[in-house]
Amino acid sequence: MNKKIHLKVNTDLNATGEVLSWFEQINQPPLSDKKIWWQCQTLLIEGFANIVEHAHKNLPLETPIELEVLRLNEYIEIRIWSFGQAFDLQQQLQTKPELTDNFQERGRGLKIMDSIAEELNYLPIDAHRHCLFLKIKY
């Protein structure tokens, strides 16, 4: 199975419902393991929220966030393209407290994504764009 979907939304956490609704179409036919589907949704929303709250923090609401999801026979790949400043994902992961030691309300997104995803990268596309790449096996 190869299925690919695209969406473009503004930099707005209020678009979370739209993003989740759009994402539902990748789950046809439904994944047999509901836990994996929940993990996929978690990856998508944590990734989207991180782009809105961090990468696009000082950018206008109209700044687009592009999302692409590809469902293959054994994997789901999520790509979220952003604008803004680059950061070193691996360094951030090393400096964040472990999930079991982090009782803060915010600041756990990267660790959550890292614990769920088979692959997690934040790659430069050009001087102003980056791609958050998430891959999960099902």
Rank of each mutant, 00 (worst) to 15 (best):
I116C: 05
S82W: 08
L7S: 10
L120H: 03
M1N: 08
S115G: 07
I76M: 14
L134W: 04
N121C: 07
I80H: 09
R106V: 14
Q104I: 00
A49M: 05
H128L: 06
E46K: 03
F83Y: 14
T63W: 04
D114W: 07
Y75P: 00
N10W: 11
L20S: 13
D12K: 08
E66R: 14
A15I: 04
E98W: 14
E53R: 13
I76A: 13
K8A: 13
A49L: 02
L93W: 12
K111E: 02
E77G: 09
N50G: 03
L70H: 11
I80V: 06
L7K: 13
T42E: 07
K8Q: 15
E98G: 01
A86Q: 10
E24I: 07
E62R: 11
W38N: 15
I36E: 12
L70M: 08
F23R: 11
K96N: 10
F133W: 08
C40A: 15
P60G: 06
V9N: 01
L120E: 01
A86P: 04
E105L: 13
N73H: 07
K8G: 00
I125M: 09
D126N: 13
L31W: 01
K34N: 10
Y122V: 04
G107I: 10
Q28H: 02
H128N: 10
W81M: 14
I76D: 07
V9T: 04
Q39W: 00
E119Q: 12
Q28C: 02
C131A: 06
I45W: 00
P124N: 03
L59M: 13
S21L: 12
I51E: 06
P97F: 14
H54C: 14
K3F: 03
T42K: 09
P60A: 05
L110E: 00
R71E: 00
A55Q: 09
I78V: 15
D88M: 05
Q91E: 12
M1A: 07
I36F: 06
I136Y: 04
